[in-house]
Amino acid sequence: MSATRGKKRRAVTSYCDWMSQLPPELHNIPLFNLAIPGSHDSMSYDLDINSHIIEPDILRRFSKIYCARKIVRRWALTQEETITKQLDAGVRYFDLRIARKRNETDPTRLYFYHGLCTHTDVETVLRVVHDWAERHPKEILILALSHFKGFDKKDEQRLHNHLINFIKTLFGPKLFPRGETPTLKKCWDQGRNVIVSYDWQAKRPLEIWTEIIYYYGNSIDPTKVESNLRQQLEKERPSRHFFVCGLNLTLPRDAKILKYILRLCDNFPNVIRRSLPRLLRWVKEQAGRTPMNIVASDLATRGDFISTVVELNISKRA
C-alpha cells in the first residue's frame, strides 16, 4: 500500500465503471486533463470480407478477388472485442471511421470501415452505445466520427445531416455540448455522459464537437512511433481541448506495404501484441514529462493497456 501525506490511494476495482471510482479530487478537473483509454479503429473487429476494398489504394483494384479481401482483413483487424466488451473493459474513447458502401440501396445507411466496411451499420452500433450509456450514467463516452469515405458530392450534405440528426435524436439530453468545459461532476450533475466529435467542416449544432486532434507515430516501427509522438506531445498538444495520443502502428502507404501483408504466417494483431508492452512502458515514462489525455491503442482490451492508462490518474497524484 502506498500513501501520500497520510492518505491512502484509492484504487479502481472495476474498469467497467472506473470513472465513478476515481478519487473526489479528480471530479472537478477538466476531462481534458484526465487520462482516458481509447480504441483505435474501434469497429475493425466487424470487418466484412465480402465488402469492396476501400484502402489501401494499391489493392483497391483487386476488390473482386477473395484472397485480396482476406489479406486486407488480416492486416486491418486492430480490435478483437465487440463495442460492448470494449465498454465493459473500460474503453471510453472510440475512433469511428464512417463509410458509404458501394451499391448500397438504402439512401441513408452507413457503415464503419478500416480497409473493408463492417457488417454492422452505424445506426445499429450507436444504439448499442446509447443503451450502455443508459446503464452506466457516470461513465463519460467520447465518440469521434471521421473520414466519411464514399460520400458522393451530390449526397454528402444529405448524409451528414441525416447522421447528425440521428445522433441528436438518439442521445438527446445525454449529449454534453461544446462551449462548456466538461468535468466528471458537471457531467454527472447534468445527466450528460456522451460527447460526440464530428470531423466535417460545415457548421455543426451545439451538441456536436469539432474534430479531436489525433497524434500518431505514422510508422510500424515502435521506436519511430515513440519518437514522433514525443515530439508532437511536447510541441503541439492543446491544453484546453481533448487530444489523443495514438499508440497504433501504421503500415506503409506505398508499395512497401506488400512487405508486410504478403507474410503468410503473420498478421497485424500479432505485430501489435509484440509491440504493445514496450509502448505501454513508454506511455508511463512520457506521462512524467507531458500530460496525457486520451490514449488510444489497437487491441485495447488486451493485457494491461486499460489499467495502465487509468492508473496514470491515480499515480500522478500519489
Rank of each mutant, 00 (worst) to 15 (best):
Arg5Asp: 14
Arg5Glu: 13
Lys7Gly: 08
Lys7Pro: 11
Arg9Gly: 14
Tyr15Trp: 01
Asp17Asn: 06
Trp18Phe: 01
Trp18Ala: 00
Leu31His: 00
Phe32Cys: 02
Ala35Leu: 00
Ser44Asn: 00
Ser51Tyr: 00
Ile53Pro: 00
Ile53Met: 00
Asp57His: 09
Cys67Tyr: 09
Ile71Arg: 00
Trp75Met: 01
Trp75Val: 00
Leu77Tyr: 12
Gln79Pro: 08
Glu80Ser: 14
Ile83Phe: 07
Lys85Arg: 14
Gln86Tyr: 04
Leu87Pro: 02
Val91Trp: 10
Arg92Phe: 03
Arg92Trp: 01
Phe94His: 02
Arg100Glu: 03
Arg100His: 09
Lys101Asn: 07
Arg102Cys: 15
Glu104Thr: 05
Thr108Ala: 09
Arg109Trp: 05
Leu110Ala: 04
His114Glu: 06
Gly115Pro: 02
Cys117Trp: 06
Thr118Phe: 03
Thr124Ile: 12
Leu126Thr: 05
Val128Gly: 11
Val128Ile: 14
Asp131Pro: 12
Glu134Ser: 15
Glu134Ile: 12
Lys138Met: 12
Leu141Ile: 11
Leu141Cys: 05
Ser146Pro: 06
Phe148Tyr: 04
Asp152Ser: 11
Lys153Gln: 14
Gln157Ala: 09
Asn161Glu: 07
Phe171Arg: 01
Arg178Val: 04
Arg178Tyr: 07
Glu180Arg: 13
Thr183Ala: 05
Lys185Tyr: 12
Asp189Ala: 12
Asp189Thr: 12
Gln190Asp: 09
Asn193Thr: 01
Ser197Gln: 05
Tyr198Asp: 07
Lys203Arg: 14
Leu206Thr: 15
Glu211Gly: 09
Glu211Asn: 15
Ile212Thr: 04
Ile212Trp: 02
Thr223Gly: 10
Lys224Arg: 11
Ser227Gly: 11
Arg230Lys: 15
Gln232Val: 08
Glu236Trp: 13
Glu236Ser: 14
Cys245Lys: 09
Gly246Ile: 07
Asn248Leu: 04
Thr250Gly: 03
Arg253Ala: 13
Asp254Trp: 06
Asp254Lys: 05
Asp254Leu: 03
Ala255Phe: 15
Ile257Trp: 07
Ile261Arg: 04
Cys265Lys: 15
Cys265Val: 14
Asn270Trp: 10
Asn270Met: 13
Pro277Lys: 00
Arg278Ala: 11
Leu280Met: 10
Trp282Arg: 06
Lys284Gln: 15
Lys284Asp: 12
Gln286Pro: 15
Arg289Asp: 11
Met292Thr: 07
Asn293Tyr: 10
Ile294Gly: 10
Asp298Arg: 09
Ser307Glu: 08
Ser307Ala: 10
Ser307Lys: 13
Val310Cys: 06
Glu311Ser: 10
Ile314His: 09
Ser315Tyr: 14
Lys316Asn: 15
Ala318Asp: 14
